[in-house]
């Protein structure tokens, strides 16, 4: 076996996997804290990529500023979506919430097609075509950025949830919303902030992954699908689970595509879901209910 190719495929897989992790983290947070299965998560990813694109082309902002602005605006949109749809429905059956999120996803995707046009677009980044040779492995700066930014953001999110006062409020809400409310935690605020954080993360991953591919209004489908595979594998509500499952999925896809057949790359994700659901229905890294 050619070691250079093997190392390259592992590197490709780790970068793709880290992008999956970034997408899945928001999805798993929203489920863990709010008990919402949010099918519209991918659309916030799409919006992040598009807002970065428009901030770059229309406002003339540089890539990094555009990406941050995109994430902040989408986080604000997340707050609005929560206020209008998910907060009023919080006492309803889970299926009602799930279907509402599906409706929201269709609404955003179709509005996107109308507003942004169906033609593919490209998010310009100064790092996209710059090649970095790390030993025998070749990566673009953008791909290294995807990985590094994801690591930084995940560490920040982890520390935030673990040690900040607000993170403790989030965990309390996840464990028992009524109990948390009784101790004086403002549940409404926790919902809003969690949604903002999740949507901001989705948008940030869209902005980061954007320059490695082309964007069009239906890319959210891809994102939410990968996100769900990772979340189910890692355990619903588990951030550390999402980290390991995302990286695992990326590397297995890359090696499977590289050494078995590219035709199976998509199938690998689904096969892993089935295997995990049969063997550990709560996810590879799950222990009990609550945010981890």
């Amino acid at each position: 076996m050619d070691f250079t190719v093997f190392a390259q495929q592992i590197a490709n897989g780790l970068v793709n996997g880290m992008a999956y992790v970034l997408i899945a983290t928001g999805l798993t947070l929203v489920f863990g804290v709010l008990r919402i299965v949010n099918f519209a998560h991918g659309e916030f990813y799409m919006l992040g990529a598009y807002l970065t694109y428009f901030a770059g082309t229309l406002l003339g902002l540089d890539y990094i500023t555009a990406a941050v602005l995109g994430a902040v605006v989408v986080a604000a949109l997340g707050v609005v979506a929560n206020k209008l749809i998910f907060w009023p429905l919080r006492r309803d059956h889970e299926f009602t919430i799930l279907l509402s999120s599906l409706g929201l996803a269709l609404l955003i995707a179709n509005s996107g097609e109308l507003l942004f046009g169906a033609d593919p677009k490209y998010v310009e980044s100064p790092f996209a075509d710059e090649i970095l040779d790390i030993g025998t492995v070749t990566l673009t700066q953008q791909r290294v950025l995807v990985f590094a930014a994801a690591v930084a953001v995940l560490v920040a999110v982890y520390l935030f949830i673990r040690y900040s006062r607000f993170g403790k409020m989030m965990r309390a809400t996840a464990q028992n919303p009524d109990g948390a409310a009784l101790t004086g935690i403002n549940i409404g605020l926790v919902h809003s902030y969690t949604f903002a954080l999740a949507c901001g993360l989705a948008a940030l991953s869209g902005a980061l992954v954007g320059p490695t591919v082309m964007i069009f209004p239906t890319i959210g489908n891809w994102a939410v699908l990968k996100g769900f595979i990772v979340v189910i594998m890692g355990g619903l509500g588990s951030v550390t689970g999402a980290l390991f499952a995302g990286l695992l999925l990326g590397v297995i896809e890359s090696l499977g595509g590289g050494y078995i057949s590219l035709g199976f790359m998509e199938a690998i994700g689904y096969a892993m879901i089935i295997a995990v659901l049969l063997w550990r229905p709560n996810g590879l890294f799950s222990t009990a209910r609550g945010l981890r």
């Binding site: 050619d2 250079t4 190719v5 390259q8 495929q9 490709n12 897989g13 793709n16 033609d119 593919p120 490695t212 591919v213 082309m214 069009f216 890319i219 891809w222 896809e253 890359s254 595509g257 590289g258 590219l262 035709g263 790359m265 998509e266």
Partner: peptide, 30 residues
Amino acid sequence: NRTDTDFTTALTKLKALNPDAIYVAAINTS
């Protein structure tokens, strides 16, 4: 596949074959 969005895995394999030229057959613009 027509639904793929990332091609680095396939292209890594092709590059390793060290061809003089790579022929790309793609209809879809994106």
